[in-house]
């Protein structure tokens, strides 16, 4: 098809509410059409699989991270309970003072400890 003919078709295709199917076909047959290269679909699927693998790895990492955090938290809670029990056994009470080891202390003894006199 001659270039001028192609140009005419281009202009005529813009007319009206719907394009002329015959002109559209002519233009496509003349080579004015686009397509992706060979193997496009496979490349798309490979990209999707690759992304899915990365997402799986990330979620696996997050899962194992939260497992580790859970274990540390449990160990911490157990340590706090153990500490409270040992305070109760040694001091006979659980209060803020007993937690700080201040149940037997009076003001004079604290001052003497602090001033080293």
């Amino acid at each position: 098809m001659k270039t001028n003919e192609v140009k005419d078709i281009i202009i005529r295709l813009m007319e009206g509410d719907e394009p002329d199917e015959g002109l559209l076909l002519k233009l496509r047959e003349a080579g004015a059409d686009y397509s992706f290269s060979e193997g496009f679909t496979d490349r798309v699927l490979a990209s999707i699989n690759k992304t899915a693998i990365v997402i799986n790895r990330e979620s696996e990492f997050l899962r194992s991270f939260s497992n580790v955090f859970y274990r540390i938290a449990l160990t911490g809670i157990a340590a706090i309970i153990f500490l409270l029990i040992s305070i109760y056994i040694s001091q006979g009470t659980i209060s803020f003072d007993s937690f700080l080891g201040l149940t037997d202390a009076n003001n004079e003894s604290i001052i003497s400890v602090l001033t080293e006199n």
């Binding site: 270039t3 192609v6 140009k7 281009i10 233009l27 003349a30 080579g31 004015a32 059409d33």
Partner: peptide
């Protein structure tokens, strides 16, 4: 003469 329809469409 060397240009094909796609080129015309593309450039336009």
């Amino acid at each position: 003469g060397k240009r094909d329809a796609r080129e015309v469409v593309n450039k336009a």
